[in-house]
Design a protein around this nucleic acid. Structure first.
Lengths: 220, 220
DNA sequence: GTTTGTGAAGGATTTCACAGCA
DNA sequence: TGCTGTGAAATCCTTCACAAAC
């Protein structure tokens, strides 16, 4: 809030809700490259330089940013540190988020052990399964609990994100349970097209499907 | 698809390869749901029923399919078995593909052990790393080789797909090496925006970025 | 001089709506 | 009857181009 706070001149004070999803999905990209630039000591950057790094047009970057405010200065570009902070705040990355994993088979354990979440502020604070032989065991000091405790855990531990790593056939019912427990977002590793109500975001991680569309271009 | 087998009635006489990427990316979704329908003994399906399953409009499904031919029958819908076979052929999924993994740290080993690739026809036939302490070890009977052998291996083993699981800082140079070795497609797990020439497709798997865009919608 | 922010233009994708066929 | 395939319309997204600001 400190330096040169620029109020959006659009409408009211709260964030506009008509930002296209595609724009929101690019913001983490900007955060990442800006963070790298800041780490290498660069403090101003133009949309053209950002476009070179990200292989996109400067106009798109400027347009994207313009949905949220005016962050640049004509003739100079953007202040790297200020912009990265602003974007993190817009994305809600100026705080940490609690997540749980459902499904502690091979995949769930690999996700639980993945060291990339914590440095970005995503803390895995609970793990669930329905398999009695897994319940009570621990993975990286994270005890595996019965799925029947999920509602209580989500509320007690302020869990906003559910990570689904169960077999395809179980995924929709697990997702229903997460929604019912009051989760806000789901990262789904199960190879299914799952459905959530409008107020719950879901994103799928599906390497097989990614491969299956690339083979189209593998003319041989 | 090779030449000839699909004729479109478009006025433009030249062979049209202009199927939008976004359409190609939805085809694996259709293959998956059609495969499930076939397994449950259903042999005809309408675009409306498919739309219900996939949460998309029937018109979009019909439009997507129309890029490749006329597969349906008015009043009846689509023959499930015939359509899934046709789509698999279009995507190149009527054969198997060899892949290699570069980077056999924690993530690379998890990918190598993932049992979801082989049933879909993606065979991981080689693994590479630069770490001398890993080279010579095996993961699930897959020997880890020196990255310097990659060019030879890609050609000898007919490897079309490279899976990148190295740290961010090493990713672009590994990708350059894969391109140089003659790979056709890359599945990149490293959190970087990497660049490839136009003839090499690349797709990124980045769970952290997926989370970072969902938090935008979690602001309470 | 440089570069932003943004209306307008252009392009891509989705949806509509209905002719045509089983 | 029911449903596909597809031009046209509508919507969404990207790029252009330039006034304004530094």
């Amino acid at each position: 809030m400190a330096t040169g706070s620029i109020q959006t001149t659009h409408s009211n004070g709260s964030d506009d809700v008509d930002v296209p999803d595609v724009v929101v999905e690019r913001l983490p990209l900007y955060v990442r490259v800006l963070t790298a630039l800041a780490a290498s000591g660069i403090d101003m950057v133009s949309s053209e330089q950002l476009g070179d790094q990200l292989h996109m047009t400067p106009a798109q970057i400027r347009k994207d940013l313009s949905y949220f405010g005016r962050f640049g200065k004509q003739g100079r570009g953007y202040n790297v540190a200020a912009l990265v902070n602003k974007l993190k705040a817009i994305l809600g990355l100026d705080r940490s988020w609690n997540a749980c994993i459902v499904g502690m088979g091979r995949l769930g354990r690999a996700i639980a052990s993945y060291p990339g979440f914590a440095p970005e502020g995503f803390k895995i604070v609970a793990a669930f399964d329905t398999d009695q032989s897994l319940i009570g065991t621990s993975v990286d000091n994270l005890p595996v609990r019965s799925l029947s405790h999920i509602r209580q855990a989500v509320q007690e531990d302020d869990i906003a994100i559910g990570i689904v790593a169960v077999p395809a056939v179980a995924a929709q019912s697990v997702i229903d349970a997460l929604v019912d427990a009051g989760i806000g977002a789901i990262l789904n590793y199960a190879p299914v097209t799952a459905h959530t109500p409008d107020h719950v975001k879901i994103k799928n991680i599906d390497p097989v499907m990614s491969l299956q569309s690339m083979t189209y271009y593998l003319k041989s």
